[in-house]
Write a protein that binds this DNA or RNA. Structure first.
Lengths: 192, 192
DNA sequence: AAGAGTAACGAACGCCCGTCCGGGTCCGGC
DNA sequence: GCCGGACCCGGACGGGCGTTCGTTACTCTT
């Protein structure tokens, strides 16, 4: 098998194993078996189990961030930008639910340099979200709403998705995103 | 030391250790050391590490549920009931953040009978929340809003708290609860 | 004084884990 | 025809883990 294909395949398998069993309970032996490789063979591609986690988190987080920036490009209305942000986040989350759960759930497992790199991405993404929330608040001249709390509430709402989302029951990501966007922007009881 | 006091103390220490290191990385030896007991001594009080997790989760979840019912008792206005529910959940979460993180983060670790008992509590609490959301929607004659998604969004918003809440930065639980209640009920941009 | 129950402990057992060493095989370039 | 690198593996190593066994000391009850 080609080197790059193997590399990608191992990352994918590892993400699935981490998704199913959690990082700590997952063993390198599980990943080797599901990749059709030997235990030692894996170490040709990766330095350590922790590096595997890091690479998964870094890739998915970079993609998420780049995708969000790309999606919002060209739109200037602050409220529409938040709608687009929500739509993108939810769509990406559902399409990459394996990696996104590993990112959300195993965030604290990384240490040192690895942790620092993911933490930087996190800060950037959170800041991106908060910036848009803040802009929308200013555009509507809303005072007394804390942009930090409002943006973290939004991210919590969306990131909790992996604990409950079932495609058969909850419909398409677009439906869920639309419901959440409406709920977030106009509230539960708004009748406009 | 009295038996009951020891028992409670071990549960408390275990919750703290699980909170800090995660269930899988935490070792019984850590818990024994922090409890000022020997490894073997712990097994006089508990059958297994998994049982320790179960007891922590069961106690905090039962308290949460009972507290919520108690807080809402007597209030009949559906919207006020949601406000009270949010206020209670947030206050309880912050006061019991150690156990609540262990409950939220390690939910999937339990198996068999233990898992079934916590899952039942979860169903009850989620149903409780969804029921109130549904009642408020009906009272305001709101159609087209999915009560399941709306209630799970609310719980996600609140349960994500443990990843970001810092008392010094974010103010009291009451402040955060008020912000979230306003946000949830009337939306980000409502100017009423 | 004996016996039963309670509250612990030291030491070990067996298992599984991440990692690494010492190779093997194949293949393109010389 | 050989060499070096890419790719991969069997098997072991050392360490940490959850759990258990056998025992002890103390305190009630009878």
């Amino acid at each position: 098998m080609k080197k790059d294909a193997r590399y990608e395949q191992i990352l994918k398998v590892a993400a699935k194993v981490f998704f199913d069993r959690g990082f700590d309970r997952a063993s390198i032996r599980d990943i080797a078996r599901d990749s059709g490789m030997s235990l030692a063979g894996l170490y040709y591609y990766f330095r350590s189990k922790e590096e595997l986690l890091f690479l998964i988190q870094e890739q998915v987080f970079s993609d998420l961030l780049a995708g969000a920036k790309d999606r919002l490009d060209g739109e200037t209305d602050p409220v529409k930008r938040i709608e687009l942000f929500i739509g993108h986040h939810m769509g990406f989350f559902v399409r990459n639910i394996t990696e996104m759960k590993v990112l959300s759930h195993e965030y604290e497992r990384l240490e040192g340099e690895h942790h620092a790199r993911i933490a930087a991405l996190r800060r950037e993404y959170y800041g991106f979200a908060e910036g848009h929330v803040d802009a929308a608040l200013k555009a509507r001249n809303r005072k007394g709403v804390n942009a930090r709390i409002a943006s973290l509430s939004l991210l919590g709402m969306m990131n909790w998705l992996y604990t409950w989302y079932r495609p058969n029951r909850d419909g398409t990501p677009e439906d869920v995103a639309a419901q959440m966007a409406r709920l977030y922007l106009r509230g539960l009881l708004d009748t406009r």
